[in-house]
Design a protein around this nucleic acid. Structure first.
Lengths: 157, 157
DNA sequence: TTGATTGCAAATATTTTGCAGGCAT
DNA sequence: ATGCCTGCAAAATATTTGCAATCAA
């Protein structure tokens, strides 16, 4: 699956850069950094977390730029906003099609899962209550494998 | 279903007042007003909306008190926090058991629906991804009957 | 070159905290 | 009478906007 000499995350980031270029955005250092972070993160991140990570690569980046860059990436559909128990300004790589997230409550690691067969059910609920269903949010919260292990053996943390 | 001489909403509010008294809270005017609003609202409301409604009944109420009262009602489990597309600080009457919401995107009218059979599915997704599922959020968004009618015939709005 | 993008500072918006006085119990 | 609760003012957060300087194209 991997392309020669680059990781999945790297090729994903390259793909993002291409899309951003196509959309007419200029590829600046902050855009590259923030894209790289989101494209390679398996965790859902809020603006501050993105900012903190970004500064490690590019100390002079400003929080404002992070906000603006996230907005762009969302606009282009590369990342999506995710509501978390502690706020609704977190982001994660987007995935096309209607998929759903399973999220670790401890480390925010997240993965998409399929639930197409649910649409029929959702639609029938809508009919039952007289709603024209347009969209739905489905998120599962739990402990990921790694955080389960840490909970059993905190010394490893 | 209704009790003699009082509406369902009124009896629900009385029930809330009883619970709050049991918990040792003092029944003040602001608490009564805010409880009444939430107990009788079929819409999900954010703090500002609650504040605006509350002022109609008790103009000298402060926004801070609304925040603090919502916190209390949430603590006692009478209302629950609901994440909406435009924010995550909205509230709605709580309902016990694991139920899910169907919400109108236009007017925020909401109703709970059952989906117990989903738990098996959610659990199996967890197993599949190595997560110990603890909780889930399921919300459907659409147009309620009334807002559908308004959309077709805006004159009536 | 040129104008989109950045980073700073300041403005907004939202929510929380401190405190003196009021009121439910 | 007691001390929980309120409302005001102010603080703390979080997010957005204005603008001159920078830099990708």
């Amino acid at each position: 699956m991997k392309q020669k000499g680059q990781s999945v995350a790297q090729s994903l980031q390259q793909n993002w850069i291409n899309k951003l270029t196509d959309q007419g955005f200029r590829i600046t250092k902050p855009l590259e950094i923030v894209s790289g972070i989101l494209a390679s993160s398996e965790k859902i991140l809020n603006p501050t977390e993105v900012y903190q990570r970004a500064r490690q690569f590019y100390p002079k980046i400003g929080l404002v730029t992070v906000y603006r860059t996230l907005e762009k990436l969302e606009q282009v559909g590369l990342i999506g906003r995710v509501h978390m128990p502690d706020g609704c300004q977190s982001f994660f790589q987007a995935q096309c099609g209607h998929q759903h997230l399973i999220i670790c409550v401890k480390c925010s690691k997240a993965e998409y899962f399929e639930g197409d067969n649910l649409n029929v059910f959702f639609h029938s609920i809508g009919t039952q209550f007289g709603y024209q269903v347009q969209d739905h949010w489905l998120q599962l919260f739990g402990l990921c494998k790694q955080c389960q292990a840490m909970t059993l053996n905190p010394a490893k943390e």
